[in-house]
């Protein structure tokens, strides 16, 4: 009965909530073990493929726990690390949407499941 109610609750929400750990687990299931260190290298790396920015830090700053600012519009961006902003990495659909857009904006191509897993592991590791 409880299981049924839970499934009903999950199905009725437009985007069901997950924990950052669950989102990481599903990425690891596609990619293999994740490395927070590799994720940090990606976060701090400089790239030339994208049209909007040359790095993640251009908008999200050197500190993923800080408020960022969009390079084109100057709009303030909430911190990316879940420890600083509890909504981050809790909606699988939103996570995929922003990997798709931002990887294209910065790298000029899609990110592999491995890159996504590493990046997520780094964000979760921040305390």
């Amino acid at each position: 009965m409880i299981k049924w109610l839970l499934m009903l609750a999950l199905a009725s929400g437009s985007a069901y909530a997950a924990t950052p750990r669950q989102i990481l687990d599903s990425l690891v299931a596609q990619a293999g073990p994740a490395s927070a260190a590799r994720g940090e290298k990606l976060y701090r790396g400089k790239f030339s493929g994208g049209k909007t920015a040359d790095s993640c830090t251009a908008c999200h700053t050197d500190n993923a726990k800080a408020v960022g600012q969009h390079v084109r519009t100057s709009k303030a961006i909430d911190p990316l690390a879940p420890v600083a902003h509890k909504d981050r990495f809790t909606d699988p659909e939103k996570v995929e949407k922003w990997f798709k857009r931002n990887c294209n904006d910065v790298l000029g191509r899609a990110c592999s499941p491995q890159k996504k897993a590493d990046f997520t592991a780094y964000m979760i590791s921040l305390q």
């Binding site: 600012q69 084109r72 519009t73 100057s74 709009k75 303030a76």
Partner: peptide
Amino acid sequence: RKQIGTLANCIA
């Protein structure tokens, strides 16, 4: 000012 930046940033 840095926190305003562009004419598009109404919400600032």
